[in-house]
């Protein structure tokens, strides 16, 4: 079966700034695919291009075989978008909002009425459907937001950070809805988030995106396997190449590398020609140790540092999850 979404070297530029730097991925029919990355990584820009909200600078994508550059109108009938913003009219009721978005997709009469009732049932808001959306809680608004994207029975649904700012109960309800849509209706879903727990829960395959590029794409299991037997971050007073080589040779250690640390900028108030020369500011070096066996590696590293009388300033054993994978791959945390 051909993929429902094929993304081919998609680029978005704003002047000299490249927001999306030529990304490629595919989504199989019936798959829940995760796009994981920190805020500003390019997830929303990518989705905006795929749904026709903005035009790509170059590259293209095919949705159920329809090229988004030449057959966007056909593609729009197949996909649905649940935007990150609460794209609802607050003074109108949930039902009036849904009626409007249904009509925009060409629905009318009995068909529209049935679809509205159907999506209200999915998001469990039938009883309060005639209240103005502005009176809803954040979670309820999110659920209406999702319902509006389901009205035209899309085969491919883009969910852009659908749980931002919602309470745990509504979040669980959204997860259940997503899983049910996928399981019962065979809907393919592209789920973007900067919460790795959500992606781990819902998706089988994940693309990790950072600074407009996909830096890893695989199943969650295989992505976590990138961590090997585990990853340990060790803070040291001083580091040199000889020390890194000796750490790499320790039992249980696969490799030890220095994580580049950004030098903090000088305080603004000290800038200026009349300011006295100050001491250079240096960050404490952090060494990343990829372990064959994390327990064994921790013991041998601490013993070695004690023997060498090198002061350990910090020690962090990364859990085997996507957050650690992201940290491992970029040196940054997902929510930085």
């Amino acid at each position: 079966m051909p993929p429902i979404l094929e993304v081919d070297n998609l680029v978005k530029k704003y002047g000299d700034f490249e927001a999306v730097k030529g990304i490629n991925f595919e989504v199989e029919e019936g798959e829940v695919f995760g796009l994981l990355g920190p805020n500003g990584a390019g997830k929303t820009q990518t989705i905006s291009m795929l749904t026709g909200v903005i035009q790509p600078t170059s590259g293209t994508a095919r949705i159920a075989g329809h090229d988004i550059r030449t057959e966007m109108n056909e593609a729009k009938k197949i996909n649905g978008l649940v935007p990150q913003d609460l794209a609802l009219y607050p003074t109108l009721s949930a039902r009036a909002n849904l009626n409007f978005f249904g009509r925009i997709y060409g629905l009318s009469g009995k068909d529209l009425k049935e679809r509205v009732e159907d999506v209200l049932r999915i998001v469990a808001l039938t009883e309060r459907a005639d209240e103005a959306v502005e009176k809803y809680s954040g979670g309820m608004k999110r659920r209406v937001n999702i319902a509006a994207g389901l009205l035209h029975h899309p085969k491919l649904l883009f969910l852009d950070e659908p749980t931002v700012g919602v309470d745990p109960q509504s979040r669980n309800h959204i997860f259940e809805s997503v899983m049910r849509l996928n399981r019962e209706r065979g809907m393919s879903i592209v789920y973007t988030s900067h919460y790795m727990e959500e992606v781990e829960l819902l998706c089988k395959r994940v693309a990790i995106i950072d600074e407009g590029k996909i830096i890893a794409l695989d199943t969650i299991k295989d992505l976590i396997a990138l961590l090997g037997g585990g990853v340990i971050h060790v803070g040291l007073e001083r580091v040199d190449d000889a020390l890194l080589a000796r750490l790499s040779a320790l039992p249980g250690v696969e490799i030890a590398v220095l994580i580049p640390q950004p030098v903090p900028p000088p305080p603004a108030e000290e800038e200026g020609p009349e300011v006295k020369e100050r001491e250079p500011v240096t960050a404490t070096p952090i060494v990343k140790i990829v372990a064959e066996n994390s327990q064994k590696a921790v013991v041998s590293v601490i013993s070695f540092l004690n023997e060498q009388d090198i002061t350990l300033t910090s020690l962090e054993i990364l859990e085997p999850n996507l957050e650690s994978v992201f940290l491992h791959l970029t040196g940054k945390k997902l929510r930085e």
Partner: peptide, 13 residues
């Protein structure tokens, strides 16, 4: 501002 413009742009209109 509310984001509905994006939703409308994503619709076949």
């Amino acid at each position: 501002k509310i984001g509905s413009f994006r939703r409308l742009m994503a619709a076949p209109i």
